[in-house]
Design a protein around this nucleic acid. Structure first.
Lengths: 141, 141
DNA sequence: TTTGCAATTGACGTTTACGTAAACGTCAAA
DNA sequence: TTTGACGTTTACGTAAACGTCAATTGCAAA
């Protein structure tokens, strides 16, 4: 029910775990690694939209095969202070690195997809042959 | 020198390790996991084009964040016997699974790339501001 | 023939990313 | 008031993917 309310402003750890299909242990682990910093109400953790976004970014990074250390670096790129010129250049370099990695991944995906497509084609051909044979056999009876 | 000969037909473990920038330990590990099966000349391993291709596939899979177990499954899709209808359908299902994963990764990459681009833009804006300020300051002297 | 490099196996160590279990607090419904 | 659902911390365990080291062997140049 409440799940349907599009604009929730805070979540419990169990809610987030359910939503993203991970365990609460995992969420706490990310916090221990300094990747999320939920508010505290006494002992309880309270997650705000910002935390939820971070969690999403972490999971996206994981799907792409980045390590938590790399993901931390990427996220750090997002919420950074303007800084001065030297920093900014170093910063742009970092971004460029990440972009190169992502584009390599993209090429890898394209290759794999087209190979899979080829396998699928030959698989369907074979299936057609079998189907055809079965149908001819059926017609003979 | 020999490296320039495009059509080598076999490699030593050290050559492959150098070419792909991994350790020999890693290559042997993949063999122990049953992912490569080089020829043996006595105790020495001899890698043929087929082994080299497999190694490439493994590394590509790793870049995409697949586990070795998943990579093994993907590679298995490639060199599979025709088989009968039931197998083939199950086989097509597997392919579909992998495709779905790859397309998820593709979306993830697109999102990350566009976010990085946004960060880069704001970074360059800031850099321009600083540059402009420095230049005006220079002109004042 | 010795020296030395490249290769081998085997055993154990290490890092990452959590899982699992124990022991406890909190609050609301029965 | 007790039971249950949910939360907490602390600590130890574990699977994956190698790294590291030791002991040994084969071969080839000096």
């Amino acid at each position: 029910m409440d799940e349907l309310l599009a604009h929730k402003s805070c979540w419990t750890i169990a809610e987030l775990a359910r939503e993203f299909a991970i365990t609460t242990r995992t969420i706490r682990f990310y916090e221990a690694e300094g990747m999320i910093a939920p508010e505290r109400q006494g002992a309880q953790r309270l997650y705000h939209p910002r935390d939820r976004v971070r969690l999403k970014l972490i999971l996206r990074g994981k799907r792409l095969g980045f390590t938590l250390a790399e993901i931390r670096e990427i996220i750090d790129l997002y919420d950074r202070e303007p800084g001065e010129a030297g920093q900014l250049q170093h910063f742009l370099d970092k971004i460029e690195e990440r972009r190169a990695e992502l584009e390599q991944k993209r090429r890898d995906i394209a290759l794999t997809l087209s190979e899979l497509q080829e396998v699928e084609r030959s698989c369907r051909r074979r299936l057609d042959e079998l189907g055809g044979a079965a149908m001819r056999e059926g017609a003979e009876r």
